[in-house]
Design a protein around this nucleic acid. Structure first.
Lengths: 137, 137
DNA sequence: GATAAGCTTAAAGTTCACTTCAAGGTCAAG
DNA sequence: CTTGACCTTGAAGTGAACTTTAAGCTTATC
């Protein structure tokens, strides 16, 4: 698959895909005889993950830490170790995601559970008081 | 409360607070006789919410749409909808991560169960490449 | 064979979200 | 009455993440 098709399939601009490669976020893929990049179908899924991760607040640098593994030495034991490390990376990402989600849910519940006797403004104050004090950076 | 104290309490730089005001994210607050900004305690909680929203992937523009000038006129329904959408974003990432992790686990099992014969190494390289995992070195 | 679409690179430009700078005004302590 | 911390503004600078531009090569279509 050439870069234009990958761009169409993934919804990510070809210039962005080249940019990701230059940043080390995507590996340098094989080239056709004319020098054009040639992508496997799986590249679509990889770009989808990068895109989603960004939308929930991860920088390219953070994504890069979790996605690529240096599997330069292809000995059996090191390969297995690299794969396990990647799983651990994904799991730590999942923990952060779960925390973000729990935070969002608690915010929603706090807003939705407004007592009937409170007006909107008082509820806003209540929500902010609950969020604010324990949550200050 | 003057801007320096608000910065300390919220953990957000005074320059950032002025920047938010200039962007219309915070309403222009009342001034002391000397022209210094004078903030209510509530402002600490409001900044905490802005900070939290940013960390889960909201842009300042999105936050501005959801938190208009006056705290008492929160667009309640829009806020809830925005929060739910963000949760959906996180969940779609989680699904992809779970699939990726399962794929890695099955890969590990495949490699582990393989006897020490011929093309184990080359096959592993091929499968990893197919998954779109960069071979960095 | 000309034209257009699509690919290549390096480099410059844009947007967002700040941060720093420059030049000053305010105010409590020494 | 000066020093220093803290405040004011507008403007310029920064880093991340792209996007566009420029110049040129390949490939398909007319």
């Amino acid at each position: 698959m050439k870069i234009g098709e990958l761009a169409t399939r993934s919804g990510i601009a070809a210039s962005t895909i080249r940019f990701y490669e230059s940043k080390g976020l995507l590996k340098a893929v094989s080239r056709l005889s004319n020098g054009y990049r040639d992508y496997p179908l799986e590249a679509v899924a990889l770009l989808a993950i990068i895109n989603d991760a960004q939308r929930v607040g991860f920088s390219l640098e953070e994504i890069k830490q979790v996605l690529p593994e240096d599997i330069s030495s292809w000995r059996h034991d090191e390969l297995i170790a690299a794969l396990h490390k990647k799983i651990a990376d994904i799991e730590s990402l999942e923990v952060r995601l779960a925390q973000n989600k729990a935070h969002l849910r608690s915010l929603i519940q706090l807003i939705d559970s407004r007592p009937d006797n409170l007006d909107c403004k008082d509820n806003a104050v209540r929500v902010m008081a609950t969020m604010g004090i324990p949550n200050v950076k």
